[in-house]
Design a protein around this nucleic acid. Sequence first.
DNA 1: TTTTAAATCAATAAAAAAGTTGTCGCAGTT
DNA 2: AACTGCGACAACTTTTTTATTGATTTAAAA
Lengths: 231, 231
Amino acid sequence: MKPILETDKEFICDIQAPCFQMLSPEEAELVRASKTQVLFRKGDNLTKQGAFASYALFVIKGLAKQYIERDSSKNYNLRIIQPGEFVGLSAVFTKNTFNYSSVAITDCQVFLIEKVVITEVIKQNGEFGFNMIRRYCSQNANLFDTLRTALFKQMNGRMADTLLYLDSLKFQYPDIFQLLSRKDMADFAGISTESAVKLLKNFEKDNLIELHEKDIVLVNYTELQEISKKG
Amino acid sequence: MKPILETDKEFICDIQAPCFQMLSPEEAELVRASKTQVLFRKGDNLTKQGAFASYALFVIKGLAKQYIERDSSKNYNLRIIQPGEFVGLSAVFTKNTFNYSSVAITDCQVFLIEKVVITEVIKQNGEFGFNMIRRYCSQNANLFDTLRTALFKQMNGRMADTLLYLDSLKFQYPDIFQLLSRKDMADFAGISTESAVKLLKNFEKDNLIELHEKDIVLVNYTELQEISKKG
DNA sequence: TTTTAAATCAATAAAAAAGTTGTCGCAGTT
DNA sequence: AACTGCGACAACTTTTTTATTGATTTAAAA
């Protein structure tokens, strides 16, 4: 049986992403030799919270959402993972297991790179390492914002944050809202689905947003930012 | 934040499964120390075809289906994974990646055991190793049957095989059929969903089976076995 | 070539999941 | 004690997914 997933037309793809451009030919070869490509279908887990992690993932194409799992069926959505981003870096550098789950919200073309290889390349190439750390830090910075929201704000503020965050992706991914259910929105805001539904209706009533089927258009940014700030 | 998934009441569970009973206290400790428990929710992937595998999985509780992926949205179901079974052994012994996907069809309580640990224990404990190989072989033997079906039989025979296989699990897991969709059945038989639907109706008409909602009751085993043999 | 096996397509029906809304109750605040 | 914020539940509607059926096309086998 011939290898299957790797043979899709669009799938043959080298490591062209900007973050790999700074590698020397030998380093690039190291990565290329050890990497694996996987097509995650919409709904597939890229990472599973608690599972052993011997590799990091680099998303070539497609969108995923990253979340932490609580008791059964309760999640907290952290962020949308975009093409060009790494998933599971912390698993490479520190812990041996993924500390969050992530799931493809569209089909995703993904590289898997074993952590020994990443470690090797970082040690050889300081610039690449610096870049890696920068990425990791910026993910962390966002985590702090998320934490702040989760700890201190209440429904309106949380939902405003969620809307502003997702809207910031809309330029690049116009259908971002269509890809998310009300439960997803609720899980981003950390509130119940029902509350999310009601809040969105309220926001619409107050002319802060417009709801078009699943799509959401932000109308009054200033006010939403205000709500976000007030909490 | 405290560890979450690991704290469910039912989830605290030691390695009581028969296949670990033959380990010496030290060996058991080795496994216990390195293992991780993960709760896979219904629909989560336990393994993803093509992904790096640094561990094997041991299912404590719950059912999963194992399948190979073809082009997008076409799968071929191989088997139902039951509690007490290992998943991904071949990844441990030979390949560095999973050569099939698997997905939980009910919530699944699973151990992950790193392959270095399994290797270590096998080297120390011949009986355990023998048992492991036995399991691996029996999985393989089934694979040959599956292959034979896939290569040589046509619709009726394939569906008969599928029915006989699934029915053989029914004593232990009475709701096995309810857990599977017609597409799943089709993917087991390696035929289109529509063909599966029609075939099942035909079988019902011929008094080989009874369809009760999603449940299927085999009526005429002899004839089904005959159909399976004829192909 | 004719027959047969089975996938694909299209249309529809049925079932399941997602979304919506109102009501209630609880736990903190004021 | 009254108020606020928000989750939980129940009833209901809408949307999406799954199942079913017949007609058509393709491909292989006889």
